[in-house]
Design a protein around this nucleic acid. Structure first.
Lengths: 142, 142
DNA sequence: TATGCTATTGCAAAAATTTGCAACAAATCT
DNA sequence: AGATTTGTTGCAAATTTTTGCAATAGCATA
């Protein structure tokens, strides 16, 4: 469980505002620790902050993604959000069992250097979703 | 423009059916040559195949993605589909100007080998969307 | 060519997501 | 603390996407 309460104050220096809605949503994501749906957050809000509007949830989620405070990915057809951990990482998603494995960012350093040298493109590999077949499912199909 | 008419008959051998709807949607994607929205297809259908239902479009698009005949990606917040070209490729997307550059699959071979050796994960890097800043925008911001 | 099985479609309703706009409320300045 | 500015929210309507189910139509088999 990801228990640390995310710090939101620094966004003020970027010209944005710290609002109760934003605090609530970021905390909700941090507590969920994993793949959270916009609807998940709405349901949590029904109990703890019933005035929170759905549209706001979508807008805030989008806002956080733009700041890389939150990552958005499409896992198994569902759009899920995740509080962005301090260490960048990625997901290996098995097409068979949909099991998700965390992959360290280090694997992408070579590739990033390559893209910069060859295309002048400064890539930030932020929370990539890589599909394939995991070892377990691969064994079974043989 | 991608003018070749995609072959759909081989899916029959997989136990699926070749329907006019599927043919129409795949051809539409092939003709569009690029990032096509579900709504784009619906609008084309209004003229050329008015009976085609929206739900069918989403279902068929999903079906094609599952077969890797079509790729689905999230570019600038919009979900776009693309007829899967014979040569696998990826997209470099600039966060500033949203310009999309095509990147050859070859860059990922090392990484794929690495994932297989270390995690036993057979990755298929199918049409990745890599975000970052392109050379042009990077220059301007300095 | 006719028949049967069942994958696929259309329809309609539900659910999810986006958008414009007026009201609200953070943050800054006095 | 009060006034001002303008980034954000709530609301309601529009749009997009999903879902259950009955009807349809591929296509394999005879």
């Amino acid at each position: 469980m990801n228990n640390k309460i995310p710090d939101l104050t620094h966004i003020r220096e970027l010209g944005f505002r710290v609002t109760p809605q934003r605090r609530f949503i970021l905390n909700a994501l941090a507590k969920q620790d994993g793949h959270t749906t916009a609807t998940d957050i709405y349901q949590i809000a029904q109990k703890e902050m019933p005035t929170l509007n759905q549209a706001t949830i979508y807008r805030v989620l989008d806002f956080f993604c733009g700041l890389n405070l939150v990552t958005r990915s499409d896992i198994g057809g569902r759009v899920v959000y995740e509080f962005a951990p301090d260490t960048p990482h990625h997901h290996l998603i098995c097409r068979h069992c949909e099991q998700v494995t965390v992959l360290d960012d280090a694997h992408f350093e070579d590739l990033a250097a390559h893209l910069l040298a060859e295309h002048g493109f400064k890539a930030d590999f932020n929370h990539l979703a890589i599909y394939g077949v995991c070892a377990h499912c691969w064994d079974k199909s043989m």
